[in-house]
Amino acid sequence: MTVHAADAAPQDAASGTSKWSRAWQNHAPGYLFLLPWFIGFFGLTIGPIISSFYLSFTDFDLLTSPEWIGLANYERMFTNDRAFATSMRVTFTFVLFSVPLKLAFALAIAILLNRGMKGLPLYRAVFYLPSLLGASVAIAILWRQLFAGDGLVNQFLSIFGIVGPSWISNPNYSLWTLIVLSVWQFGSPMIIFLAGLRQIPQDMYEAASLDGASKWRQFWKITLPLLTPVVFFNAIIQTIEAFKSFTPAFIISNGTGSPINSTLFYTLYLYNEAFSYFRMGYASALAWFLLLLIACFTAFSFLTSKYWVHYDD
């Protein structure tokens, strides 16, 4: 390739083709290496996004061709769909409780581990294992068992004479079992926190303690402010993941969001609309609304970040 170019260049140096061939030389390899990605990006991402935007204004059952119905899908979502409202409430409850709790555990354990504890690699591995396994169907099955009426949790409570409810089949508690499952997987944000804590210069603590600042004060005045970029990052990733969570709710509720829609995650509702009832148009509208939610959340986080995230200048 390069040899060929060296031959060709002097030959038509004055003509326009050399410009083109040089441009080809410079840019083509990049595009060639990106070719698989481009095909995927346009064929499997951008194309489908546009297509699902169109479908969200149609009535489409997979068998007959989509029929344009204007804003009817969106209208139904906001005026005439109790299940949609329920799924929003369930999902927001899940996000609002699971993400902060998960991050709090992750940060607390990371700070403890960062104090030069012996056996750090072992602890880190133990705390990380659940987040590696947690998305698995097997773990959701285990969770169903733990929180069943005769499950492990209630057997444990009975030692103290407490008769626990059937957590999974009680609509007041079923969502909480999923929140607990999510918090149990705090390992990966913990590892990111640990990496962030290592970046904080030690001399800041040394200077602070020479000045007589307590550990508690050091945490609030040094650790937390310097860690805000990591907190910010973790919060965004975990929130998006929480919005997209599907498998545990599907397995624990047998794919229905039961009992009485108390675990009807947004994704679960969307899946059922699409693949149980074949309301593809409506499901596309749901998907676009989810995209909008996540985009707004992300944009909002970035816009407000300058007020609370500490960046080195």
Binding site: P48, I240, K244, L290
Partner: peptide
């Protein structure tokens, strides 16, 4: 080095945030 590299890189990063539901049905 190629034209639009930064633009495509930004596009690639954006797809990280994309919920898979939005491409699911098409």
């Amino acid at each position: 080095q190629f034209k639009g590299r930064n633009f495509w890189f930004a596009m690639m990063l954006m797809t990280l945030m994309l919920p898979y539901q939005v491409t699911l049905i098409p």
